[in-house]
Write a protein that binds this DNA or RNA. Structure first.
Lengths: 153, 153
DNA sequence: CCTGATTGTCAGTACTACTGACGATCAGGT
DNA sequence: ACCTGATCGTCAGTAGTACTGACAATCAGG
């Protein structure tokens, strides 16, 4: 039952970007999740940590915008990260509607390790490509995702 | 409130493949869905049609394998496509456990139009890239997704 | 001080895809 | 022919994810 009949995608399906992107994303997400489990977080949570560490301290809404997700989705994400002691909410000095969300020291440490583990996972994901092709893939995706008119999903 | 504070992803997040692939996939799926609505199908259903048209007639299970989804997921997908008159299930001559799934004439016609519309959507998706970079992106994704040891998700 | 907008929160919902179980059917050995 | 184990399509239930809509608290402008 190994190499037979209708096992893989046909030639047309293999050219379809919806198909290719979906499965690329699934595979990368799986590799990322596996790589991150030792640190008790998954890819989405690492994204939140990155969004917070990358720039100046942010409100929950700002963090959500950086990640391209809804502010209501951010609530549960931060609940989990706060429970794990990786981020802290504190009240905003001048606007009491807002929370300022920051990484704890543990969070910073965890993020450092997570980035390394995730880099390994990315290397494995990109293994079928040469170094140059890998870098071009990353740049092309950036050009598409970060294109100037970026509207919110 | 337009271009200010913490609006986009920071530099680290922008390099993260999980982030880039997720949003690339979201955008392509949205463009595809929009392009296909005139034909009454979405990207997933077009995938099914492609999987069926690409190769010899298939059982539901084979079609699912070509698409990389579970056979239980295929059931509802085919229910919808059959209701729309785009595919037909008929009993397999030699194995009565199986259904042979085929495109109807309407299905073939719809798929032709859908492919054109989807090509337009892909062009829009790839617009930030040059022609060469676009083709390289497609090939790199193929190399990653179709890599020989492709295990089932 | 009032009105309208913003922030974080929560309940409810939608969508997708899975697991587990079922009956029907097939294949192989005896 | 019979039994056992595997396969196919189906369905119910469940899990994960992210949304919409509504709410109280708070802010900003007039």
């Amino acid at each position: 039952m190994s190499s037979t009949d209708g096992d893989g995608p046909g030639p047309e399906l293999s050219r379809n970007l919806v198909y290719l992107l979906k499965h690329a994303q699934l595979r990368m997400a799986e590799l990322g999740t596996n790589a991150l489990t030792p640190y008790g977080i998954d890819g989405r949570e690492m994204g939140v940590l990155l969004a917070l560490a990358d720039r100046e301290p942010a409100s929950q809404q700002q963090a959500a915008q950086r990640l391209g997700i809804d502010r209501t989705t951010m609530v549960a994400l931060l609940d989990a990260l706060e429970r794990k002691g990786l981020v802290a909410r504190r009240p905003h000095a001048e606007d009491r509607r807002r929370n300022v969300v920051e990484l704890t020291d543990t969070g910073k440490e965890t993020l450092r390790s997570a980035i390394e583990a995730n880099d390994d996972a990315e290397r494995e994901f990109l293994a079928p490509l040469g170094a140059q092709a890998a870098e071009r893939l990353r740049r092309s995706l950036q050009a598409i995702v970060l294109r100037p008119d970026g509207r919110r999903t």
